[in-house]
């Protein structure tokens, strides 16, 4: 079912500290532009898995604009450095809100 807003549950910590394992990301298909720094929910060009990463830069060519995606926690991220840039059609939504899980404060 198509909905303007898509909520996904995050698995993994490659976007920490922005979003951590178990948090919810609220994303929307309604966006006017995508710029470096935006966080996207998209399908992996390798196997179609849903991923969440941040746009590092845009690459425009004859095939249109492609997006180079990276995790914030780059030492823990499988991203465009390994699977290449993504096309706009792979984008599920632009993240507008992270609902964080309550976590115990470190002692």
């Amino acid at each position: 079912m198509w909905t303007p807003v898509k909520v996904v549950k995050i698995s993994g910590n490659s976007m920490a500290p922005y979003a951590k394992d178990g948090d919810y990301a609220v994303s929307t298909k309604f966006f006017f532009s995508i710029a470096p720094g935006d966080v996207l929910v998209f399908r992996s060009p390798v196997d179609g898995t849903i991923l969440i990463k941040r746009v590092r830069n845009l690459e425009t060519s004859g095939e249109g604009t492609k997006f180079f995606m990276e995790g914030d926690n780059r030492m823990r991220s499988t991203d465009s450095n390994t699977f290449g840039t993504i096309a706009k059609k792979s984008i599920i939504g632009k993240v507008i809100f992270i609902a964080r899980q309550k976590r115990a404060e470190p002692a």
Partner: peptide, 11 residues
């Protein structure tokens, strides 16, 4: 909800 993976790997 579907799961969005923030994969943990060491590229």
């Amino acid at each position: 909800y579907e799961t969005a993976y923030a994969h943990c790997d060491y590229p």
